[in-house]
Write a protein that binds this DNA or RNA. Structure first.
Length: 450
DNA sequence: AATGCAGACAACCGCACTCCT
DNA sequence: AAGGAGTGCGGTTGTCTGCAT
């Protein structure tokens, strides 16, 4: 049985208190004391809920309250108490005469969290962020195996894996790598634009500096990958997020974006959909970025050129994703077809089509023929992300005996890739478990991307 | 001057707990 | 023992304001 409401909500005023209301409340409490909050509004002649009166008194009108900024001593005390107690605001406030739990909570959320981050301290654990990331990186072991595979194959495959995850064309990285500072905003826009608006065939309505405002469609492939990886990595899924606030939270400035991509080369924010989606499988890392907050300056030990040893590195990140993909319960399938068989019913922002998946596969994306034709000379088949032609062949070649699962008539891969079907997760699994010497060392990607 | 954005903080919401009848 | 009232609490939302464009 639910609780009875404390008041008739229709008949009470809400929102900020006026000086007249404050005066009435003070006069009433002076006369009758506190308590009996339910009956107090009537006695005081206020059109307020009793609970609202109580909060106004305890958080603002009480004569023993301090107003104004927190002293350095109070600040340090809050930090120490938070480290010991966590977000037990009432307990913390009890140690700060004249401060309420609401005061302390607001001060923490708006000021202290930011300050700690700028000092390179994780406000949740109160440990150095570099140490946390080092711990994380150290916990990930890279897959190894005997034998060898052609460098070109591996290189292409690595690039494609990364491009797939980042929805970024390698030629864009290449062309911009020497002029990052001047192109930060432009590049940021280009990345998001390419990942979203251009795919949708739409110009961003607000111009280059307003790209964060536009909700983005999430590529079905990315959506599925995100889901699969999350399951595989046993990361908890957080509640659906609003793309705009998520972007604002994580990427408020181009420099933030650059910091993130410099260190991680993985972009989870692009996994935002209009409906909001679960936070991605990279939540382990992005929880830290989340904790870092919106105004984090780049810690001094993080530089674009030389990440400190063991802090966070590309091999770990990519390996983590590969392992997760391998462990995934689902198959990712990428299909190339001459036929644009099915229209996507969910709206105009999808420029590609989805076919009915074959029985043994969960998801197939059909690439419309006109796009194949447009891009074939450039070796790219662009649809949300790029899969480099040479890699496709290389994967097929490397895993021919291991992982390619025929699916109906689309069981072979020709040089034109038309009609070919690649079960990517199976391919990754096969490569990982093969006798080939696959050095899962993606360190050179750093030089490619930076 | 108008507009949009983000920070700061006041206020609200809903749940849980205790006390009292 | 059951249920209502009062209160505490933490998370979230709303509003105001200053600043940038």
């Amino acid at each position: 049985m639910g609780r009875a409401p404390c008041c008739e909500k229709d008949n009470v005023k809400r929102g900020p208190w006026t000086p007249e209301e404050d005066a009435k409340l003070l006069a009433c409490i002076a006369q009758n004391g506190t308590g009996s909050w339910r009956t107090l509004p009537k006695k005081a002649g206020l059109q307020r809920c009793g609970k609202s009166c109580r909060l106004r008194w305890t958080n603002y009108l009480r004569p023993d309250l301090k107003h104004g900024r927190f002293s350095d001593h109070e600040e340090q005390l809050i930090v120490r108490l938070h480290a010991a107690l966590g977000s037990r605001w009432s307990l913390i406030a009890a140690q700060l005469p004249g401060r309420t739990d609401n005061d302390v909570k607001n001060y923490w959320n708006t000021q202290l969290k930011k300050k700690l981050c700028e000092m390179g301290i994780d406000p949740i654990t109160h440990k150095p962020i570099s140490q946390l990331l080092a711990d994380l990186a150290g916990s990930i072991s890279l897959p190894k195996g005997p034998g060898h595979i052609a460098d070109a194959t591996l290189g292409c495959f690595k690039n494609d894996m990364l491009n797939l995850l980042m929805r970024q064309r390698p030629d864009q990285w290449q062309s911009e790598k020497t002029s990052r500072p001047a192109f930060q905003l432009e590049r940021t826009h280009q990345q998001w634009g390419n990942a979203t608006n251009n795919i949708a065939g739409q110009e961003h309505p607000k111009g280059k500096d307003k790209l964060y405002s536009k909700p983005m469609q999430m590529d079905p492939i990315m959506q599925k990958m995100s889901s699969d990886l999350s399951k595989a990595m046993h990361c908890k899924l957080t509640q659906p997020i609003n793309p705009k606030s998520y972007m604002r939270e994580h990427v408020t400035r181009p420099s933030d974006f650059v910091q993130i991509e410099d260190q991680l080369f993985v972009n989870t924010s692009c996994n935002s959909g209009e409906e909001g989606i679960a936070k991605s499988e990279m939540g382990i890392l992005f929880d830290h970025l989340n904790a870092v907050g919106t105004s984090c300056s780049k810690p001094t030990q993080w530089t674009a050129d030389a990440p400190p040893e063991g802090v966070v590195n590309i091999p770990s990140i990519v390996s983590e994703l590969q392992v997760a993909l391998t462990q995934s319960q689902h198959h990712m399938s990428f299909s190339f077809s001459q036929q644009n068989q099915y229209d996507v019913p969910s709206g105009p922002n999808h420029s590609h089509s989805v076919s009915q998946p074959p029985d043994q596969l969960d998801h197939v994306v059909q690439y419309p023929q006109h796009q194949l034709a447009d891009q074939s000379s450039a070796n790219y088949y662009q649809i949300g992300h790029d899969l480099q032609h040479s890699t496709h062949d290389a994967i097929l070649e490397a895993t021919a005996d291991l992982a390619w699962s025929p699916s109906g008539s689309n069981s072979t891969c020709s040089s034109s890739t038309v009609g070919a079907q690649c079960d990517l997760s199976a391919a990754v699994e096969a490569v990982l478990s093969s006798d080939m010497n696959i050095l899962w060392d993606f360190s050179e990607l750093g030089s490619i991307m930076s």
